[in-house]
């Protein structure tokens, strides 16, 4: 018997039982709807070997803290949890001297044209050279497809701060990419 069901039996109230069922169903809906998105989020940051573990930990936390999951924006909240989990893992790895070795670029399919290949290499190199904070906001917008309002939820900052951080990160990645493209051209 599930632990939550035992609690339900001890309480013995209809309202309680209805609530528990609705809550559980709501969680399962979120899980099924957003599992792939959270998996891709983790995959981009830790690679294929550890991504599924990060997702499982993320949803375990969501289940334990169901009260905190926003009804209107569960996905950015889940990204925020995954982000913290990954940051904790990295801290532990660094303490143990494990290098941060995952390079997402090796999994990309080679483009057909030299120009496209040049742009792709320049984009990835520019992304690599950004600070951690800039890289995160840029990926959230470009690859997770979030709006700036949703990005603020993930980063735990005000919408105003997210807007200005995005603007600055955008300027920096443009500058880096322009320099990388010039390098390729010369």
């Amino acid at each position: 018997m599930h632990a939550w069901a035992a609690t339900q039996t001890q309480c013995g109230q209809t309202r309680w039982a209805v609530y528990m069922t609705a809550d559980r169903q709501w969680f399962v809906d979120i899980y099924e709807r957003h599992y792939d998105a959270v998996l891709r989020y983790a995959w981009r940051r830790v690679g294929p070997d550890d991504a599924a573990d990060v997702v499982a930990e993320t949803f375990t936390i969501a289940w334990r803290r169901l009260r905190d999951v926003p009804e209107d924006m569960p996905l950015p909240w889940l990204y925020g949890v995954a982000r913290n989990l990954i940051a904790n893992r990295r801290r532990k790895d660094r303490r143990r001297g494990v290098p941060d070795a995952f390079d997402a670029g090796v999994y990309l399919v080679e483009p057909d044209h030299a120009e496209a290949l040049g742009r792709r290499d320049a984009a990835l190199a520019a992304l690599h050279d950004l600070s951690d904070d800039d890289r995160e906001i840029v990926r959230l917008i470009a690859w997770e497809g979030l709006t700036t309002a949703e990005t603020a939820v993930v980063l735990g900052c005000s919408a105003a701060a997210a807007t200005v951080r995005l603007h600055r990160a955008r300027r920096r990645i443009e500058k880096l990419m322009s320099a990388k493209l010039e390098e390729v051209a010369s």
Binding site: R40, W43, R44, A104, L108, A123, A142, W143, E174
Partner: peptide, 9 residues
């Protein structure tokens, strides 16, 4: 800038 370069697409 990053369209088409998502490794997890």
């Amino acid at each position: 800038l990053l369209a088409g370069h998502d490794p997890a697409r």
